Computed example of a mutant assay.
Amino acid sequence: MAKKKAVTKRSNKNKGTSLSKLVVFSVLVLSVVLIGLMAYQYRDGFLYYLGYKSKEVRLSKDYQNVHDIRIYDVLTLYKTKTIGIDVSQYQGNINWNDAMKIEGNYAIDFVIMRSTAGKDKIDLQFKNNWKKTKGKFIRGAYHYYRPNENSLLQAENFIKTVTLVKGDLPPILDIEKLPRTQSLDSLKKGLRRWLVKIEQHYKVKPIIYSGESYYTDFLKEEFGDYSFWIANYSFWKKEMNSEWLLWQFTERANVNGVDNYVDVNVFNGIKIQLMDQCIQ
């Protein structure tokens, strides 16, 4: 009788253990599903944080409509401020005689263009864009930083490619990706070397561009002595942070004379204040 009772107890214990395992498994499955749904919903933001652009992604019609509404909301809110675009070879051969307004209504005051990337890449459209925008807009040039390449060679690539004159914006460093072959400390040392070499050459302090998450996590504290141009495309963000010099709020605007989508930026001030930021 005692033996039979012992067996019964073990049976109940096994049932309890199985139930616990089932509960844990169910919670894990639910967690994975929820994370998957969140990742899908915010996939553009995650990809941007990892250093990817989404220009190659075709948006659904509804998504694009919502995005267009946000563009108008932000441009309307900042209609008294200074608005500009940034371009690279991915916009193709731009007709700068027609590229004067964003979404057909908002005048373009400044244009920032990619000049170089890494230690040896020159943007295929830089020379044409730089020449065609002279005298039409406040111009700026940026270097796309490759974390796994020598920082001084990258600075030399920018210097030999870009000649800045009075009225141009200071040189700009675009850093978006994390390194694969070095530590974060080494990355930050490389960024500092680039910035110092560029400042020594052009006699003006560079501007740093990055996404907001990257800026907050890796740059804000150690590079607080620089001005920042920050990208944040969130549907919920309608106003720029006061400490930002420039805010890139969308990468999907339409501009006459440009075949592909264009990034749009707001300067934290009026045009004369932006001119004060330029090389004197």
Rank of each mutant, 00 (worst) to 15 (best):
K119H: 06
S115V: 08
N129R: 06
Y106N: 00
K238N: 11
L246T: 10
M113L: 10
L37H: 10
V266H: 04
Y261H: 08
D86P: 14
K127N: 03
G167F: 06
G224C: 00
L50R: 10
K197R: 15
L245C: 06
Y202W: 09
L173V: 08
A39V: 01
R139F: 00
Q125V: 02
L50W: 09
V27G: 04
D123Q: 05
D120E: 13
Y209A: 04
K132C: 04
Y90E: 07
K127A: 03
D44E: 14
I71Q: 08
V66E: 14
D86H: 12
F223M: 01
K134P: 02
R70K: 14
Q200S: 15
K13V: 07
S183R: 00
N128D: 14
Q273S: 13
K5Q: 12
W130V: 00
E199P: 08
F228M: 08
L153R: 15
K271T: 06
Y42D: 11
K55P: 00
L191T: 05
L153N: 15
D225E: 09
K55Y: 09
L173N: 05
H143I: 06
E56W: 08
L77S: 10
N128I: 08
K238D: 09
N150K: 11
A107H: 14
Y42E: 12
K15L: 00
F235R: 09
L47E: 03
V23A: 12
K166G: 01
H67T: 13
K5N: 02
W247I: 11
N157Y: 12
Q182C: 11
A253F: 03
V29A: 09
S31Q: 11
F235P: 15
Y144T: 08
L245I: 09
W96R: 00
F218Y: 15
K3G: 03
D62Q: 11
I279A: 06
S234V: 07
V74Y: 02
Y49R: 09
N268F: 06
S18K: 15
E243F: 11
K166T: 05
